[in-house]
Design a protein around this nucleic acid. Structure first.
Lengths: 335, 335
DNA sequence: TTGAAAGCGCTAACAC
DNA sequence: GTGTTAGCGCTTTCAA
């Protein structure tokens, strides 16, 4: 593999000129730049990131932390971030810190120390120690899924979204509404789920409808958890006429449970989810759609801006949600 | 951030000794090693990968190519690979090469050139030019989803798995069987889908049952595609009594279509999928389960072995599949 | 068992 | 506009 020196020799210039020419830096005549570029291409030259990184102190790499990759939501956010980073010429180093063990090790060793220019945390709730540890890295930080001090933060209005969903049910005349939440404290310990819970209670309070505690179920943010939660709610002596699930996946699980019980949706029980999962359309699930890819993309952009400007100022962006009404809460094309 | 030299000075030894001590290399007394390690830890030292990479030519990074991240299957394979790589101390650089444009650019620029020790390609069909380009990198290569020359390859017996599925339907007495495949040529252009198609025809031939072409649908490997395919099949003048979907996601879509048509599963139409998607259990979908995470993990392990041994010999591993029978093909707990 | 020193391939300051 | 050169922070011979 050709080095910059070989290119320089072949082009009859110095390595400094090659470096300048290839990086579009000023101070090189157009003629020389062209020649260098041609020679470099012919020799199939590619820069050594290690050498360049060592010389400049910048790696052109961004570390991205996610709790999972195999769930639709995280995959989407990640995809959004990846696209932005890649087209800006940054590489993405992926760290999956789902399990406690890997997570502990990650924050202890910080494998990305000295090898990334910035860090992006995707919907992963950080303890104070963990976020401090990241701040110690002294690189721009980004966060998706809530507000974080010292991080460029991107989130959605979870409370507002939740209100949208619950009010929709209330407007349909429902008063007996159950809720399937993520867990207590939810598995991810993020502000988002909590906000959605609060929204439920607030919307109910708005209409002065008391919340029935036995209609609150824990769905663990998974399909099967949603199904179990629904079954538990159905075991109560009273049956709700509507359900607000805090994620679409839990809503899918709940719908399966209802189907097994031969309970008609929305006739007997209406259901609304949250996320805008790709399967929600097919399933006819009404849901609060959030711009998932965009959340990752925006966070990445904020990070890049900070990187370019070398500023330490972080920014916050709140992205919009939208209620999409489908057959699970209205109409009767049965589910 | 402390450098090796500062650590050396603080420990009263040379940088060479620090380097040896920290990398568990021989030729350092246990006493010195301990001291160095303590000092390094106290100073919160962490190696500069750039410098180390420049000196050794090895980066301890593996590039991973995927077509998508937001689909369950790819996420799982990726997660399996990530886990193995991380616990071996390798970082994972993620490249999503889904769209044509990004893909073209990726193979033209090869951003991972000189910055990874190995490359892992996850279920991404490569053209001859593309795989040649990767081989030029002259690093160990891995492939999941089929056999590839020059790549450590991991795949499943797609033909056998397909036979499992179709024979299961045949054994239930079905003769009028439809198939929903990925596309023609399928979107990913991988051997796997093709094998499953062939299996369908072979199993049918085994029982001397002719294949009805209007019962073959293209589902694009997506839920909505599966639904469309099912609708198209239902538009035929004859109606099948069973469906083999080449992926669980397409099967889910087909089940939705059937439900909308108020067609009972499995009473009127039975359905079997392929993958072992996490939602298949909840949906009561019979399916051919493949060990998804393990496919990624195994490929990563093969890569690491090659890396450690410095050998050029690649290996092939075929992983097993298993038919899991649920209510979509048997029993009557309605879907 | 340890240290001195020569690179690894690039960038950036400075000189021309 | 271009070249010279001193690092960047490691690893690895070679010598002691």
């Amino acid at each position: 593999m050709a080095t910059i020196e070989e290119v320089a020799r072949a082009a009859g210039v110095s390595t400094a000129t090659v470096s300048r020419a290839l990086r579009q830096q000023p101070g090189v005549s157009e003629r020389t730049r062209q020649r260098v570029r041609t020679v470099a291409e012919e020799m199939n030259y590619s820069i050594s990131r290690s050498a360049s990184g060592l010389a400049t102190g910048r790696t052109r790499r961004v570390g991205v932390l996610v709790p999972f990759v195999s769930r639709w939501f995280f995959g989407q956010v990640l995809a959004g971030a990846e696209e932005v980073l890649r087209s800006a010429g940054y590489d993405l180093m992926l760290y999956v810190v789902g399990d406690e063990e890997g997570r502990e090790r990650f924050f202890r060793e910080l494998p990305l120390r000295r090898s990334v220019d910035a860090v992006l945390v995707l919907t992963l709730s950080l303890s104070t120690e963990e976020s401090d540890r990241l701040r110690e890295l002294d690189v721009p930080l980004g966060f998706v899924g809530g507000r974080m001090d010292g991080f460029n933060s991107v989130w959605i209005d979870d409370h507002g979204g939740g209100m949208l969903a619950v009010r929709h049910l209330l407007n349909q005349g429902h008063t007996d509404i159950a809720m399937i939440h993520g867990g207590a404290p939810d598995a991810l310990n993020l502000p988002a789920p909590h906000e959605r819970c609060t929204a439920f209670r607030d919307a109910m309070a708005e209409h002065e409808i008391p919340v029935r505690e036995s209609w609150l179920g824990t769905g663990d943010f998974s399909v099967s958890g949603g199904r179990r939660a629904m079954n538990r709610i159905l075991a109560d002596e009273l049956r709700p006429t509507a359900v607000f699930a805090m994620s679409d996946e839990m809503a899918f699980g709940a719908m399966h449970a209802l189907r097994n019980h031969k309970i008609h949706v929305p006739g007997e029980i209406a259901i609304v989810g949250f996320d805008g999962h790709e399967m929600s359309e097919c399933s006819g699930l009404s849901t609060v759609v959030q711009p998932v890819r965009q959340e990752g993309g925006t966070a990445a952009k904020l990070l890049l801006e900070q990187l370019e400007q070398g500023s330490t100022e972080t920014r916050d962006v709140v992205l919009p949600t939208e209620l999409v009404v489908r057959s699970s809460t209205t109409g009767d094309d049965s589910m």
